[in-house]
Simulated scan of single mutants.
Amino acid sequence: MTFWDAIAIAVAGLGAGAINAVVGSGTLITFPTLIALGYPPVLANVSNTVGLVPGSAAAVVAYRRELRGQGERLRRLGACTTVGAIVGATLLLTLPPGAFKAIVPVLIGIALLLVILQPRLTAAVAARPHRPHHGGAVLAVGVLGTGIYGGYFGAAQGVLLMGLLGTLLAEDLQVLNAIKNVLALTANLVAAIVFIAIEDIDWGVAGLIAAGSIVGGLTGARIARKLPPNVLRGVIVTIGSVAIVRLLA
């Protein structure tokens, strides 16, 4: 790893931490950066997941005020996320590496589409005045599926979660974002534990992403809100598109 590689990874971690706190698609910054620097896809994915855990935790801390009174709901949805993340992480480690390389461009493409559509999703969620207080079994199954996705790859899982939570829960959007941050942290943490126990981790990469993502997670709202949303989405879509080209090359 060169000095400039290290700078690029740390900066990508900072951007990912900030974007995860506000939108939830930070992996589309860090993972493509690692691919562009020549890291193998599976190693890049597991190291990235481990590195983003501290930044996700920082985002939860930043939104702790909105989490008051959400303990029961978080325990129920957190259990679904935990089971899903274990399944997703296990799939990543048991399927052939070639399967990951074939599947991930499709997942990135879907994630990029979600990022592009995110303003419309947010507007549709905000326009629903009669959302139920509890999401019930539908929300539990949806969060389980998002956990599987998060454990396997995780790009834009926050966008998926906001769509689910906003459609099925009667809460303020800031509260929903706080819940989203907890569930994303849960998926990342569970997958990271599985990866650390079984798979090789590039700890230099993980450490740089962690350092950057902590700063980004704590200041994410302030940093991201100073930039036009279209600029953020443009950066994410550009970097993600480069990653797809690189993986298919």
Rank of each mutant, 00 (worst) to 15 (best):
2 T>V: 04
4 W>K: 09
6 A>Y: 06
13 G>C: 09
16 A>T: 01
16 A>C: 03
18 A>P: 00
19 I>P: 00
21 A>D: 00
21 A>N: 02
21 A>L: 01
21 A>E: 02
22 V>W: 00
26 G>T: 02
26 G>H: 02
29 I>W: 01
31 F>I: 00
32 P>H: 04
36 A>C: 05
38 G>H: 13
40 P>N: 10
40 P>R: 10
40 P>T: 03
41 P>R: 03
41 P>D: 06
42 V>M: 09
42 V>K: 15
44 A>K: 06
48 N>F: 01
61 V>S: 07
64 R>L: 10
69 G>H: 09
78 G>W: 06
79 A>H: 08
80 C>P: 05
80 C>A: 14
80 C>F: 07
80 C>E: 06
86 I>P: 14
88 G>T: 14
89 A>E: 07
90 T>I: 10
91 L>N: 07
94 T>R: 14
96 P>D: 13
100 F>R: 03
106 V>A: 13
107 L>E: 05
111 A>M: 03
116 I>D: 01
118 Q>G: 06
118 Q>M: 11
121 L>D: 03
125 V>P: 11
129 P>T: 12
129 P>E: 11
131 R>Y: 11
134 H>I: 07
135 G>A: 05
136 G>W: 07
138 V>C: 07
141 V>D: 06
144 L>P: 03
144 L>T: 12
145 G>N: 10
151 G>E: 14
151 G>R: 06
152 Y>S: 05
153 F>T: 00
154 G>R: 02
159 V>M: 05
163 G>T: 04
164 L>M: 11
165 L>Y: 11
165 L>V: 13
166 G>W: 04
167 T>P: 12
168 L>N: 05
169 L>V: 04
172 D>M: 15
172 D>P: 15
173 L>N: 11
175 V>I: 15
175 V>H: 15
177 N>D: 13
181 N>Q: 14
182 V>G: 08
182 V>T: 10
186 T>E: 04
188 N>Y: 04
188 N>G: 07
192 A>D: 04
193 I>S: 07
193 I>W: 07
197 A>R: 09
198 I>V: 13
200 D>H: 14
201 I>S: 08
204 G>I: 03
206 A>N: 09
207 G>V: 11
208 L>I: 05
208 L>K: 14
214 I>H: 13
217 G>Y: 10
222 R>Q: 14
225 R>F: 14
229 P>E: 11
230 N>K: 12
231 V>E: 09
231 V>F: 15
235 V>G: 13
237 V>P: 04
238 T>G: 14
238 T>F: 15
240 G>D: 03
242 V>E: 05
243 A>Q: 02
243 A>D: 00
244 I>G: 05
247 L>K: 04
